[in-house]
């Protein structure tokens, strides 16, 4: 079964996610309208500028339809800006967005672009060599709720990857490298969700 993954395509590095998902044999749908959400098995909210994406989500009335899908169990993964948009609490984002995941996020936690970096990182659930994690004007996850699992920290400090039920958030950009393992981890979440009866099943069509 080939999974159909939606990528929120309002702004940001949509093509980079699509490229890796294609290597992993997933079908891709760019999500820019409510109707694009109907028969997807998972949703990726890519990297980009969180303020810009947040405004377009509001202007084109996408917040409620996306929230409803995720609450119904649709697997979702936010990278960088995507993690910010998923968070229940964000310091210095000027308007509420999806507010679903029990994480508290600080935007642009490392400073301006000259402090952006890449670094080897161990992520819970990714076996073998560490990931080469790319942080670009990246947020950090300051705190997580009781039901949220921490998947990675920088040097035992800031949380940079977390999972809560059907929701995954990373501060960094696995889509910028050649490593497909983080995308595979997300697709595994989508397979599990699509095959389990009590979770979201894409039968609308």
């Amino acid at each position: 079964m080939s999974l159909k993954i939606g990528i929120l395509a309002l702004q940001g590095d949509v093509a980079e996610h699509a490229e890796i998902l294609t290597i992993l044999d997933a079908q891709i749908t760019n999500v820019r309208r409510e109707s694009d959400l109907t028969d997807i098995d998972g949703l990726i909210i890519p990297g980009g500028e969180s303020t810009a994406i947040a405004r377009l989500l509001i202007a084109y009335k996408l917040i409620d339809p996306i929230r409803e899908k995720i609450i119904a169990g649709l697997p979702v993964w936010g990278t960088c800006a995507g993690a910010i948009l998923l968070a229940k609490e964000v310091t210095n984002l000027d308007r509420p967005s999806l507010q679903l995941m029990d994480i508290r996020v600080t935007r642009n936690a490392f400073g301006s672009q000259i402090y952006s970096f890449e670094k080897q990182l161990h992520v819970e659930g990714i076996n073998g060599d560490p990931l080469n994690a790319i942080f670009i004007r990246a947020p950090i996850i300051e705190d997580v709720g009781q039901d949220t699992q921490v998947l990675a920290r920088l040097e035992q400090g800031p949380i940079v990857a977390a999972k809560q039920e059907n929701m995954l958030a990373t501060s960094f950009h696995p889509e910028l490298g050649k490593d497909v393992r983080m995308h595979q981890l997300f697709l595994d979440m989508c397979v599990q969700s699509a095959s389990s009866g009590d979770k979201y099943v894409s039968i609308e069509r």
Binding site: A9, L10, Q11, G12, D13, V14, A15, E16, G47, G48, E49, A52, C80, A81, Q113, I114, Y115, S116, F117, E118, I134, F135, I136, R137, H173, L176, G177
Partner: peptide
């Protein structure tokens, strides 16, 4: 810091904007 991936990566985040 300042690697090619990180420098060109910010431009990738600006796409569609």
């Amino acid at each position: 810091v300042g690697s090619w991936t990180v420098k060109s990566g910010l431009a990738q985040m600006l796409k569609g904007g």
